[in-house]
Amino acid sequence: MSDPVLSVKDLKTHFFTRAGVVKAVDGISFDLAEGEIMGLVGESGSGKTVTGFSLLGLVDAPGRIVSGSVKLKGTELTTLSAAELRSLRGHDISMIFQDPIATLNPMLTIGQQMRMAIDAHERLGARAAEARAAELLTQVGIPSAKERLRAYPHEFSGGMRQRVAIAIALLHRPAVIVADEPTTALDVSIQAQILFQMRDLARETGTAMVWISHDLAVVSSLASKLAVMYAGRIVEQGPTATLLRDPRHPYTAGLIASLPAMAAPGTPLTQIPGTTPSLLSLPEGCPFAPRCDRATDTCKTDPDMTHQDNRGWRCFHPVTRTAEVPA
């Protein structure tokens, strides 16, 4: 296999707040190959967004990357200066946010904003820039792209604004795109269109993606591999289909089992007891222990990642049964 385009090793990003240290990302590792899509799933507060921000060097005070490494095409990102990072962002690695309204400037036309994104990294004539912008809008499924360049964001629907944000992220054909729940706020029909296009784009352009989502079904149809986060750690990772069919970590197994599709209509769903922990008061040892029906005294120490073949899990008593396949 060729070298990974993105390689993350034992990355830790902590927030030093008055209430205490929030270990939002606490030792995560993964590799991403060219054109590969990795789904990053987990509940709110598990550290998905902070992971994305860390990859792009966007973490602000009171937070910082405290240790670990992020290598993009061999370049270590965690030691770069702010200026060096800025020249990489949008060019070699870019991010798509959950809320496209926050990304787009309401005062500027779509064309002006795309032009600025082009100018940030490249010198192109007005004609060529417009052609490039229109080409990308077409690619993400916006009809009559040339005319649309003169429109303002408020003239677009939520789905179209998100497409524009994706087009901007794609402008310089970055090696890696981090997409933070970009379709969560959209309707299923629009979500399906965008997922479909993103999958084809990754295939055609070789752009690798980290696709952040809390929806297992969304990532299962898009990502070839999966990382499941809980309380700032990746608790399980591996090929998507393998993980969903044969989860090892009790949390992954619980998430899959609790899906309505896994129970007969009207019957009680399998539920994970308890609530997600506060990162300020994590229990000693395995953070999932208070909610885990397999927990023993051993779990009072923190499990390391166990690797087997191309997958891994952080659990002393992994689940081994095969998940039931829904009809």
């Binding site: 789905g159 179209m160 299923v188 979500q191 269109q193 997922l195 090929p239 599709a261």
Partner: peptide, 22 residues
Amino acid sequence: SVPKLVLDADELVHFETIEGEV
């Protein structure tokens, strides 16, 4: 257009997408 849980790596997922927007 609802994404379904895909459990087979070789399955090429086909989304039925609705043309256009509301």
